[in-house]
């Protein structure tokens, strides 16, 4: 198949795959309630009682299937981009928690005498498991939604997240086993155990099999260079294997100075060109506890790369007449990967790079972009919040007015890639919308989800 024919069939194929995975997900979620409906069924216990019970089953399943959403399956996440799968995981956790809470609340409303079961002397062990599951779930959701406000260290939060998730689902399963009313029948019980077993396999895959596979494909740090204040570029080469192939703009989880089993990995956009693979470059800004140590990484250190992931790539829109790359701060990194790839291919389509930063001296990869501009049909437009005294360029935030001045008149067929802090993405989205850019041409990469 020729390259253009391949591209022509790729988008519909990705959409079809996306729909297929979504349908599969919804079927998986519905499976346990369908299981309850299978004959023979025990006698009904009243509409609200059974409604509450089915909610409990379905919400537990939602939580169990969450393990699939974070298992980083390449085929299942490729159509959407894994950032959005994680975002879906986060929203589902909120919805699932409401459904989980609805289960005991409905039961207590229809039968307030059940509150007596909550007194320590009377609590049967399976009820205790149910209460424990809810406590773990609430801790899980609160620590994820408000990690920064609670000042939880990212690495510690990740370990707590994994433990609490398994505890919340495990205790919910013990609760269901203890009640054992609707899955008491042996065949139903067996089917339920198969379903639960699949979640256990997912946990084992994520926590044991995947790290073991990663440990067999180590990388070596071959260079550590300072790019701008608090910005470092790491260059990695595969150690004894062929490395990964990626699309420009994608990202990977990077583990430095530690075992892949230790869960000390962090997601970073790849800065290098796919043409330069298997050599990989990551340009990283000091933003947190881990990234503040990046500059101290010794040359020769072992690293592990889990990737590539993400749908943020111009290669997904190969027919575009041109690309507009809008970056805030370190959001420049995936843009540079795309520019490098286009330069390596000799692509001369018109490109616009709008880079928003606080100050000129803090602009990351400035020299790299200047060099790339010589090889590309690229217009670079820096926008500064605090410009130097003799600054002639754009000033302030990426408002519709600024974008209007930067973009060409024929702007509705270009593809727009936006990466940066969430408020900037929202501002640009509103700006482009007001300028008549079709939202289907607006592509973002979500990071900083927790």
């Amino acid at each position: 198949m020729s390259k253009s024919a391949d591209h022509a069939t790729r988008t519909p194929r990705l959409i079809a795959q996306g729909v297929l995975w979504l349908v599969l997900y919804i079927l998986l979620i519905m499976l346990p309630v369908a299981l309850l409906l299978l004959p023979p069924r025990p006698q009904g216990s009243g509409f609200w009682y059974d409604f509450s019970l089915a909610l409990g089953f379905a919400a537990t399943t939602m939580m169990g299937v969450q393990f699939a959403l974070t298992a980083r399956f390449h085929h299942a996440t490729a159509p959407y981009g894994i950032d959005i799968v994680y975002s879906f995981h986060r929203h589902l956790a909120v919805v699932g928690t409401i459904l989980v809470l609805a289960h005991p609340i409905i039961l207590i409303v229809i039968n307030p005498a059940l509150l007596h079961l909550l007194q320590p002397r009377h609590v049967p062990s399976h009820m205790l498991a149910g209460i424990g599951s809810i406590v773990c779930l609430l801790a899980l959701v609160a620590s994820s939604l408000w990690r920064k406000q609670l000042r939880l260290h990212y690495d510690g939060w990740r370990i707590a997240h994994a433990v609490l998730a398994v505890a919340a689902v495990g205790l919910a399963l013990l609760h269901i086993e203890g009640v054992s009313y609707y899955i008491g029948e042996p065949r139903k019980h067996a089917l339920w155990l198969v379903l639960v077993g699949s979640w256990l396999l997912l946990v084992l895959r994520t926590r044991l099999v995947k790290p073991w596979l990663l440990s067999r494909w180590p990388y070596r740090v071959v260079a550590v260079e300072r790019d701008a204040p608090e910005v470092w570029t790491l260059t990695l080469e595969p150690d004894g294997h062929r490395g990964i192939e990626f699309e420009a703009g994608q990202f990977a989880w990077l583990t430095l100075a530690g075992s892949p089993f230790a869960m000390h990995e962090h997601p970073f956009s790849i800065a290098s060109s796919p043409v330069a693979a298997p050599r990989l470059q990551f340009t990283i800004k000091e933003l947190g506890d881990f990234t503040r140590t990046i500059g101290n990484t010794p040359v020769g250190a072992i690293a592990y790369v889990d990737g590539p992931y993400g749908a943020f790539s111009m290669d997904r829109y190969p027919e575009a007449p041109g690309y507009v790359l809008i970056a805030g701060g370190i959001g420049i990194v995936p843009m540079v990967s795309m520019l490098r790839a286009l330069a390596d291919r000799g692509d001369q389509r018109p490109l616009w790079l709008i880079g928003a930063n606080s100050r000129l001296e803090r602009v990351a990869l400035r020299d790299v972009v200047s060099t790339l501009a010589l090889r590309l049909n690229l217009r670079v437009i820096p926008v500064l919040e605090e410009p130097p005294a003799n600054w002639q360029g754009e000033v302030g935030y990426l408002t519709a007015d600024v974008l209007n001045r930067c973009l060409p008149a024929q702007r509705d067929r270009l593809e727009y890639f936006v990466c940066g802090p969430t408020p900037m993405i929202h501002l640009v989205e509103h700006g482009l919308y007001s300028l008549g850019v079709p939202m289907a041409r607006f592509h973002t990469e979500l990071f900083d989800l927790v």
Binding site: L22, I29, V33, G44, F47, A54, L55, I84, L92, L99
Partner: peptide, 30 residues
């Protein structure tokens, strides 16, 4: 936009589950 879609899809999934649970309770008690 994708994030909004993910949020709507999550709430839609929740609504679907509520409907399914109600259907189960209805069948069980008719």
């Amino acid at each position: 936009m994708r994030n909004r879609l993910a949020r709507w899809l999550a709430w839609l999934t929740g609504a679907l589950i509520v409907l399914l649970a109600a259907l189960f309770a209805f069948i069980q008690n008719r």
